[in-house]
Design a protein around this nucleic acid. Structure first.
Length: 588
RNA sequence: CGGGGAGUGGCGCAGCUUGGUAGCGCGCCUGGUUUGGGACCAGGAGGCCGGGGGUUCGAGUCCCCCCUCCCCGACCA
């Protein structure tokens, strides 16, 4: 039994000034967490109970699917991460440190390397596979911008697991098993989620899906089809390729366009001086060429021009996801000086491409379809060119999904409109393939006695982030509202009375009875605290059931509030214990 | 790394324009009165006013430099 008179907690009357999102605000105000550094939080007793409850559910389900728990150090030597090149690839997000002998160490941001080496260390036969291992570990990432309390910390608790299979069919099975387990976990946690297609990013590999909790304060943007079940992170949305067959387009025509370096000025000029008979020119008629500088993990840089329809912005997040592990830098003045072929404001496709004289890589968004005609830069100051046809007058080195995705865009599967929403990434399942196995030489002997490279999957759940996500979903104006499965206690008993009126005695007996019945009770036994304060605290702290032992006791009734359903019931003091036990064991 | 906001007892804030004894509310301690919606009275404790340099008889306040935090973007469980 938890007694509020003894519990190490202090609730705050006012919202902390530095907290914006509800989970951060309420977790601090209710005394669940305290900030100690940017992206670093201490867990106080109530918060720690919630975190451990989430962890327990995750662990139970992982064990139930047959995965086995291990535990690695967070402090890891550099050489292992040099082999996978992640000492470099991870960039500034890696916490690096040096020991007394001058040796480089890092704090693990994720543990693919360690798991791969561990399996290599112990296993050497196909008979040993498949195997899935996991750990629940504190991870460290030196995030550029930690935010929203424990939603994005620099130190956070994560369940990461890895599957090892002899062939692709096995990997698919392991992947499906993890996926199903994740669905069970999030159901038990009470977290709503959408499974979206994702980019494989810096990890390499192929099939990848994210579990997003659809919450507006989330950092991921995803699309969902309004009619079929297509859903994807905007980074991973694909555009159906099509072709225009119009052989009746005029030859390219240069048009003088002084002081028209932007799409808006260009469209205005076209309508003023080159008005077309059928309709107005729009930004969608223009081909916008955006230059970025790619910085590869080995340090070398490369310019890249991306062509998108002029009515769309380039979504740098999408670009970054597709050029990963290279990083995208802005193309600044100094860079333009190095590449005179690129005329700022008048860049056009005719001088671009790896096989052109400029040797600058040129990629097109798939919306710039083969056979379509465009107005675009003519690669000289103050000149644009019209009637330039993709495939006839210019080609590119390939396609890149770069244009921003807008609500109403057609679904790539069924062409119905897409809707856009924000979400918190609470889980990620991923077919890694053989990348790490090859790097670390993880192979086993197959049936024929020949070495076969193992194929891997990697799967993560942000445990501490799940706590924040649950708080985001389950709160109201008054405070937190924990689902029964993860609440620090099942019942919060409030005593309002003078102490000599029998309320304290009754409440204490009731608490004892409920504990005997297997419930966890938080008893507000504070003397000389006014009822108003106790009510406010009970609502803020968020136990799913609030029981008030007060003035009704004289008439033989106890007030039972269901914080989740937001209902209040007066129950006879004789039967209240049974009533509460039943309520606590119901769904919710 | 770009843009915006902010650093004053544990928490929330005022004071700065116009330099002159560091304040308010909450919380905390003591005593008393209260007890169904953040009670009341009286008395208390607690502050290198983010840091460093300057200007001045005198700086929380004016000037310069630095640091930190929060929010929005670029990056990621």
């Amino acid at each position: 039994m938890l007694r509020l008179s003894q519990l190490f907690v202090r609730t705050l009357r006012d919202d902390p000034a530095d907290a914006e999102v509800p989970s951060h605000r309420l977790l601090v105000r209710a005394g669940y967490i305290r900030r100690v550094a940017p992206g670093g939080y201490s867990w106080l007793p109530l918060g720690w109970m919630v975190l451990r409850n989430v962890e327990r559910i995750v662990r139970q389900e992982m064990d139930a699917m047959g995965a086995q728990e291990v535990h690695f150090p967070a402090l890891l030597p550099r050489d292992i991460y040099d082999l996978s090149n992640r000492w470099n690839e991870y960039g500034d997000n890696l916490f690096r440190l040096v020991d007394r002998r001058g040796a480089d160490y890092l704090l693990g941001p994720t543990h693919e390397e360690m798991f791969t080496l561990l399996v290599k260390d112990l296993y050497s036969s196909y008979k040993d596979l498949p195997v899935s291992l996991y750990q629940i570990q504190t991870k460290y990432r030196d995030e550029a911008r930690p935010r929203a309390g424990i939603l994005r910390g620099r130190e956070f608790l994560m369940k990461d697991s890895y599957s090892f299979d002899i062939d692709d069919e096995g990997l698919q099975l392991s992947y499906d098993t993890h996926r199903a387990t994740y669905q069970r976990i999030f159901k038990r946690l009470g977290l709503p989620y959408v499974i979206v297609k994702a980019m494989s990013g810096a990890m390499g590999g192929s099939m990848s899906e994210e579990f997003l909790a659809p919450i507006d304060v989330g950092e991921d943007t995803f699309v969902r089809c309004t009619s079929c079940d297509y859903a994807a992170n905007t980074e991973a949305v694909t555009t159906a390729l099509s072709v225009v067959n119009d052989t009746d387009i005029s030859a390219p025509q240069n048009i003088p366009s002084p002081d028209c370096p932007t799409i808006v000025t260009l469209v205005n000029l076209l309508n003023a001086q080159y008005a077309r008979a059928d309709r107005q020119w729009t930004a969608a008629d223009t081909l916008k060429n955006v230059v970025v500088m790619l910085r590869h993990p080995d340090g070398h840089t490369e310019p890249l021009v991306i062509g998108v329809p002029g009515d769309r912005e380039v979504d740098m997040k999408r670009v970054a996801a597709q050029v990963s592990p290279a990083e995208v830098d802005v193309f600044d003045e100094a860079a333009f000086a190095l590449y005179p072929a690129l005329v700022r404001g008048y860049i056009g496709p005719t001088v671009l491409g790896l096989t052109s004289t400029s040797e600058i890589r040129y990629l097109l968004d798939p919306r710039v379809v083969l056979g379509s005609e465009w107005v675009t830069g003519a690669n000289q100051q103050d000149v644009h060119v019209a009637h330039l046809v993709h495939g006839r007058d210019f080609t590119a080195d390939g396609t890149i999904e770069a244009a921003e995705i807008l609500a109403g865009d057609p679904c790539p599967l069924c062409s119905s409109p897409l809707e856009i929403a924000r979400g918190i990434e609470i889980g990620h399942v991923f077919q890694l393939g053989r990348k790490y196995a090859e790097i670390f030489g993880l192979s086993v002997l197959d049936k024929n006695g020949k070495p076969a490279v193992v194929t891997m999957g990697s799967y993560g759940i942000g445990v501490s982030r799940a706590v924040a996500s649950i708080a985001e979903v389950f709160h109201d104006d008054l405070g937190l509202r924990w689902p029964r499965a993860i609440a620090p206690a099942d019942v919060h008993i409030v005593i309002t009375g003078k102490g000599d009126d029998g309320t304290t005695q009754f409440a204490t007996d009731l608490a004892q009875q409920l504990e005997t019945d297997g419930l966890k009770v938080l008893l507000d036994d504070r003397a000389s605290v006014s009822p108003g304060v106790k009510f406010k605290d009970a609502e803020l702290l968020g136990m799913p059931i609030i029981v008030i032992v007060g003035r009704g006791l004289a008439a033989g009734t106890i007030e039972v509030r269901d914080r989740l359903a937001n209902t209040t019931t007066d129950v006879s003091s004789d039967t209240v214990a049974a009533h509460i036990v039943t309520l606590a064991r119901s769904d919710g």
